[in-house]
């Protein structure tokens, strides 16, 4: 599956999975990763706050968009990043369309399974905005902070 990886240096497409994958259901049935890199896939109905200890053992987390209008995984991603301080890869799977890519990046996703989507379209969409009103899980400063900085400079 073609994956767009969003990094500080830009976005790149590769099909390499980052290690093996197990699902939360498998984990609950007792599956435990051996040595190596592993990602945990979590359904979008799960309360992420309750999974802090489990996700801490993984290198990556995969969150799902069953349909692009189902926005639950945005909340999960922000909780992972902002509250659980998860530093590994957070990957979006399912209905991942370029028109939502920037929302995903701001919510804390740094990998998008884009399938046969046009990578150039995604990269353009990720750069569609230079101003944001609210703080989120990404590193961009919201307008209110930039305004303050500008006032101070003046």
């Amino acid at each position: 599956m073609a994956t767009l990886r969003i990094t500080d240096e830009g976005s790149v497409v590769d099909s390499q999975p980052k290690g093996e994958e197990i699902s939360l259901a498998q984990w609950r049935e007792g599956a435990r990763p051996e040595a190596g890199r592993f990602s945990l896939s979590i359904p979008n109905t799960e309360d992420i706050d309750g999974l802090a200890e489990i996700v801490a053992r993984f290198d990556g987390v995969i969150l799902e968009f069953p349909h692009f209008t189902d926005g639950r995984a945005y909340s999960q991603a922000r909780t992972l990043r902002e509250r659980l301080r998860f530093k590994g890869e957070v990957k979006a799977r399912g209905a991942v369309l370029c028109d939502q890519a920037l929302f995903m990046a701001r919510a804390g996703f740094d990998a998008l399974e884009i399938g046969d989507g046009d990578p150039a379209g995604f990269i353009r969409a990720l750069a569609a905005y230079s101003v944001f009103y609210q703080p989120a899980a990404d590193a961009t400063a919201p307008a209110r902070v930039l305004r303050g900085a500008k006032r101070e400079a003046a």
């Binding site: 692009f68 209008t69 189902d70 926005g71 945005y74 909340s75 922000r78 939502q100 920037l102 929302f103 995903m104 701001r106 919510a107 905005y129 944001f132 009103y133 609210q134 989120a136 307008a143 209110r144």
Partner: peptide, 13 residues
């Protein structure tokens, strides 16, 4: 208004 505009988490409620 500003906070809610293009909010990354709350645009697909």
């Amino acid at each position: 208004r500003q906070w809610s505009s293009l909010h990354p988490e709350f645009s697909f409620l």
